[in-house]
Structures are given as C-alpha cells and as structure tokens.
Design a protein around this nucleic acid. Structure first.
Lengths: 222, 222
DNA sequence: GTCTATATCCTGATAGAC
DNA sequence: GTCTATCAGGATATAGAC
C-alpha cells in the first residue's frame, strides 16, 4: 500500500493529466488521494513544489530511457538514422505507464508542461536540458547538410507535433470520429516518428536556403 | 480613439496572448485597459463571453482569409500542391497584426486556444470547423494515396507543429539563443510550410501501411 | 504524522448611486 | 454608460489539537 506521499503524487498526476495543472485545485487532489487536506503542504510545502515532484518522478525515468537510447546512437560509428533518433525521443514518453489502467493519463501529462508557461520555466532546466542537448548534437550528425538555423527550427516543429499528440489524445480520438486510435501506443509512435523524420530531413527549399546563407544575390557558401 | 469595448478587447488579447487565458484575471484586464472594473460585465456579460469575443474578432478575419485561399485551390482543375495547401492554412495566422507594435502577441494568441480545453470546446465549432473540413477535403485530393487514417493522423501532427510555432515564439527565440529569428514572419511561414508538407507527404513505412490495410494475414474488415 | 478548523487572499460577478 | 462598494465562493496556506 502506497504511503501518503505516493497517494498524493498519484492523484496529482492523474488530475494534472486530465485537466491541466492550473485547473486543478489542491482540494481536489486531497479528495482524490483520500488524504488530509493539510497533507500536501506538510509533505511538499506548496503547490509549486508538488508539481515539480510529479514531473520529476515521471520524467526522471523517461529521460533516463531517452538518454540510454541516445547513448547507443552516440557510441555508434555511423551517424544515426533520423528515424532511430526520433524514436529515441518519442518512444519513452508514450510507453510510460503502459499496461496500467491510467496509462493514457500519464501520456497526456507528458505534454502538459510546455503549455503551462508558469511551470515550464520551473522545470525545464532540471529535467529536459540534457536530453535536448544530446538530441541536438545527434541531429546535427544525422543531418549534416542542414544549417544550424534550419535544423533548430525543425527541431522545434518536430517537438511541437510530438507534444500535440501526447497531450491531445482525447481531442484526436474525438475529432477524428474514432478514425485515429490513440490507444495503440506502438502504432502512434511509428506514425509520429515517420512524420517527424520526414519533416526534419526534408530537402531545403531554394528560398529557404537563401535565408541562412551569409551572402545573397552573389552566391551562398553555407 | 477606441471605445471602451475595443480597449477591453485589445487589453484582453494582449494579456491572453502573453500569459494564457486561465492565468489572466478580469481585474488585470480592466487595469490594463484603464476602464472601470464593472465594464467587462457590462459590455460582455462574463469572462467566457469576453474570451469568445476576443477570438471571434481575431479568427473571423483569419479564417475568412484561409477559406478564400482554400477556395482558390478548390476551384482549380488540378489537385492542389501540398505546399500551397499548407500555406493557405499557415500564412493567415502568422500575418495578422503585421506591422503593428504587438503583432507577436496576436500570433501568440493564435495558439492559446487548443491548449486551454475549457475554452476550446466553446469556440472550435463556431470558428474552426469549416476551415478544418475544407482543408481535410483538399488534403485528401492532394494526397490521394494516403489512407484516411494516415492522412488524419498527419493532419493532427502538422497542426501541432503549427500551433507550437505560433504559440511558443518567445520560447523558440530564447531556447535557440537567438538562432531562430521569430520576428521574420515570412521566413517562419516558409520553414513551417516546408516542414509540414514534408511530414504530410512522406511515403508510408511498410509497417505503417500494414496498420491500415483492409486485410492482413487473417483479414479484418472493420 | 495526521487531522480539524480557519486565516488570508483573490476570483468572477452584482447592486445601486450617479 | 460609468463608477464605487461589495458579495459569495474558492484558492493557497497555516495554526494548533491529537
């Protein structure tokens, strides 16, 4: 049986996933967790610290998995394949909680952070900075012809598509009239990896290349 | 000089863009708008109705522009090019408010809606349903080989990347150390169109095709 | 460590004078 | 239409008995 602290973390995670962080009052968490109304402040000190604890508990393991997968690609002689690389980022957050009753909630949590600026700043450096750095380095190796600017832009765009799919599973299932089956995790991962990899590795448009070249009408060397 | 109603709408739009809808109390809007604290309820009736008015004012024109661009593609004999099609969706929200001092705020507003479920339901049908329907129909014509399921999944992923770029301009500029210049709207549009079009039109992976094929080793008809 | 009770603040919304 | 004053409810956080 989980102790009070875990009960609170579990309840908070489910509720944050489903309704968003800002929309969940502490009262609702203590009710769901069936603990005393003062327990959150006793164990965590404040809502902000509780939020951080929820994310650390979940994203610690996810990002360790990501880093393991990225390390395998780093130590290879060959530059990584772009799909492998995307897979290393995409698969871990989709697979958390798999098999448990509330797995879809955990996945939905995964995308909440970026969309809540107040908590984003609070957490990003501790939890995501290293993954981002390593992913970017490998991406540069996988796509050596892309200028830094273009690669970085596309990294954000790919991230955006991943976050959207993680976060909006309910919306996707509903707005597609059930056509998109968000419950099949492995299929979702493949589709997303395919999409991201294609976008990341698209040949540059001529006018796109222009925009990062040091010189213009004369010619470009970058 | 704008009247009270417009002052409120302007202030609300800026604040919603910057901080998110849920995070902005009405008191802050009236302070920013320099109007009386009862003015919002007098003119709009409730916060919910104010939010709706803000989005209608901004997305009415944007979606009319989108529909105009989509109509041009609908009436063409040829199936539309995938980049043209993406451009019709992407360009209007990026171009709103262009040249005004707070143009980046308007663009940021554009992405707020989807991330605030409470207001999303309220507004989507009125403002976005028709654009979505027409875009999807043209997408099916532009990518006739993609099964409905794959096309729909990819439409969500492409939407996610667009929303992320619209919403997180500050984050993108900051996290890239200025490498990504979010102030150049036309460049941003091209990069985004390129990324989305490449993702949408990627050839299906073999295992991705399997997942939507009507028959498998045994065969399924649903 | 747990609980009840409550302090303090802030929210959206309203009443009623002008 | 505009303003001041205020309500009722709900938020985070804390005090103090057990």
């Amino acid at each position: 049986m989980p102790d009070t602290k875990d009960q609170i973390l579990d309840a908070a995670e489910c509720l944050f996933s489903e309704y968003g962080i800002g929309a969940v009052p502490l009262r609702r968490i203590v009710a769901e967790a069936k603990v005393n109304s003062a327990a959150i402040h006793y164990h965590f000190g404040s809502k902000e610290k509780l939020v951080k604890a929820v994310f650390v508990r979940r994203y610690g393991p996810i990002n360790r998995q990501r880093i393991e997968l990225l390390e395998a690609l780093e130590s290879a002689e060959q530059p990584p394949g772009i799909e492998q690389l995307c897979h290393a980022i995409v698969a871990p957050p989709f697979r958390i909680g798999e098999g448990t009753a509330s797995e879809h909630l955990y996945r939905s949590l995964a995308g909440r952070l970026m969309t809540e600026p107040a908590y984003m700043e609070l957490i990003f450096n501790d939890l995501f900075a290293e993954v981002d750095r390593r992913f970017d380095a490998l991406l540069a190796k996988a796509l050596p012809d892309l200028p830094d600017t273009v690669r970085t832009w596309r990294k954000f765009m790919a991230t955006g598509s991943m976050i959207f799919v993680l976060r909006e599973q309910n919306l996707i299932a509903r707005a597609s009239n059930g056509l998109c089956d968000t419950s099949d995790v492995e299929v979702t991962i493949r589709r997303l990896v395919r999409f991201m990899a294609a976008g990341l590795s698209a040949p540059m448009a001529d006018d796109e290349a222009d925009l990062v070249a040091p010189a213009r009408s004369g010619g470009r060397n970058a």
